[in-house]
Design a protein around this nucleic acid. Structure first.
Length: 417
RNA sequence: CGGAGUGUAGCGCAGUCUGGUAGCGCACCUGGUUUGGGACCAGGGGGUCGAAGGUUCGAGUCCUUUCACUCCGACCA
């Protein structure tokens, strides 16, 4: 992609209400755009690319673990939520409305009811179990106070998965599989995270774990052990304090986390409420044992930046970056620079590298600032040292610069990307 | 829902006290010069001043009502 054709409205100024690095840099970098405030955002081309890349990682790992992707209807009949009782208890966070025939509908903030409805219509036998269905699409929660950009929006992209089992043990087996799958996802995305014991909240059910991205800006207080992988949300571990001794013998530490994933052992709460049953091997009707598993995909973008940024801008991780490589032409009027840049650009594209060529007429400084703000992992700068046969290879982490003879640059790129 | 603020160009703001031609910075357009750290000069475009009503010869400014947004708190994946 040529930068000159890209819609990336970068800015020197941040919105006045932005305090988090992720909010500031995603806005300044032209990744997202606020829509009339109040927790609604447009994703501009680069934001959409990052979102899709993160989504792809989530999808690949879930598919690998045997899950199947579906897409539930966006608008949900309120009657389903009346069956489960949540139409009453969920309160004002639920956005409700009527259609032209005065029927009641809502925008789902989560989809236990809708998914149970799908399964109860299609699964009749224990032979069809277990089953793990998921979707990755927009959710809406009419938050009392949306804030922090993508961290707590009202509309957000969430992966929600639901598993159905013939017995409790099998549900626990799948719960463990999902925990491992989530660890793979968070690891691939380059995140420093902890799995912690959690409170089940409004979803209900027993036994739940949260996946916390460790960051000072996190809204959750957690206790972690640095010697082993123990961790807990302080809401759950109220009696545990900093300095207390972990079961492994090391002291516990109090820290902050961003909740980006949550897995629950649901049991039969929703299957019973919605009368969703299958015939077991005795020929008796039985409610499904269920698990439910969420990942805040759009929140992950914020989390990645909270954990990976400096005072110049974003630093995307390898699997989340909007481009793999940024080629910066220092002076667009220098024919030798342009020729070499075009050559590298075409060669990289031919190798399947997702590359952006900064071919703008602007001066070196302006283009460099944009590179730093956008936070693409690597750059090649073709500038004034080309007359000596040198170009620069830059790694965004630490802005490490390395001079490379221009005739070797393709080889170096092949090794480093 | 309690407390505190703010609504003026795409973004960030001044002007409101003390009524009298709608301003500044960034961004944008045209021409020229410039090209290793967010260039410079000259010219230019863009506004129902959140909305409604009122006072007045005259309202961004004063009065009334209303809506939205932000921050702190409570709440929350």
């Amino acid at each position: 992609m040529r930068y000159s054709r890209l819609l990336v409205p970068t800015s020197k100024e941040a919105p006045s209400d932005a305090v988090l690095a992720s909010h500031i840099y995603l806005m300044r970098g032209g990744y997202i755009q606020s829509v009339g405030g109040s927790g609604l955002y447009n994703y501009l081309p680069l934001g959409k690319k990052v979102l899709d890349r993160v989504r792809q990682v989530v999808k690949e790992e879930l598919d690998n673990a045997g899950c199947q992707e579906v897409s539930l209807s966006f608008v949900t009949p309120t009657s389903l939520w009346e069956e489960s009782g949540r139409a009453e208890e969920y309160g004002k966070e639920l956005l409700r409305f009527k259609d032209r025939k005065e029927n009641d509908y809502l925008l789902s903030p989560t989809n236990e009811e809708a998914m149970v409805n799908l399964v109860r219509q299609t699964v009749k036998s224990y032979k069809q179990l277990p089953l793990n269905l998921y979707q990755i699409n927009l959710k809406f929660r009419d938050e009392i106070r949306p804030r922090f950009g993508l961290m707590r929006g009202r509309e957000f992209l969430m992966k929600d998965a639901y598993s159905f089992h013939a017995n409790f043990d099998d549900m626990q087996r799948e719960f463990a599989v999902m925990e491992e799958t989530y660890k793979k996802i968070f690891t691939r995305l380059g995140l420093n995270f902890r799995v912690v014991q959690a409170d089940s909240g409004q979803i209900g059910g027993d036994g739940s774990k949260e996946f916390m991205i460790l960051a000072d800006s996190g809204e959750d207080d957690i206790v972690v052990c640095d010697a082993c992988d123990y961790g807990a949300n302080v809401e759950v571990a109220e009696d545990i304090k900093e300095g207390d001794i972990c079961e492994c013998g090391a002291p516990l530490r109090l820290t902050k986390g961003i909740e980006a994933g949550h897995i629950f052992q649901l049991g039969t709460k929703y299957s019973e409420a919605l009368k969703a049953t299958f015939l077991n091997d005795q020929g008796k009707a039985q409610a499904y044992e269920m698990g439910t598993y969420g990942i805040g995909v759009s929140r992950l973008l914020a989390g990645i930046i909270e954990q990976n940024h400096d005072d110049k801008g974003c630093i995307w991780t390898k699997e989340s970056a909007p481009f793999d490589l940024y080629i910066l032409i220092s002076n667009i009027k220098d024919e030798a620079q342009v020729t070499l840049a075009e050559e590298i650009y075409e060669a990289m594209k031919a190798q399947g590298v997702d590359v952006v060529l900064d071919d703008r007429k602007d001066r070196f400084g302006a283009k460099m600032k944009d590179y730093e703000l956008l936070g693409i992992p690597h750059a090649v700068v073709i500038g004034k040292k080309l007359v000596d046969g040198q170009v620069e290879f830059i790694s965004r982490v630490g802005m490490e610069k390395e001079e490379v003879p221009s005739e070797n640059i393709l080889t170096v790129l092949k090794e480093r990307l």
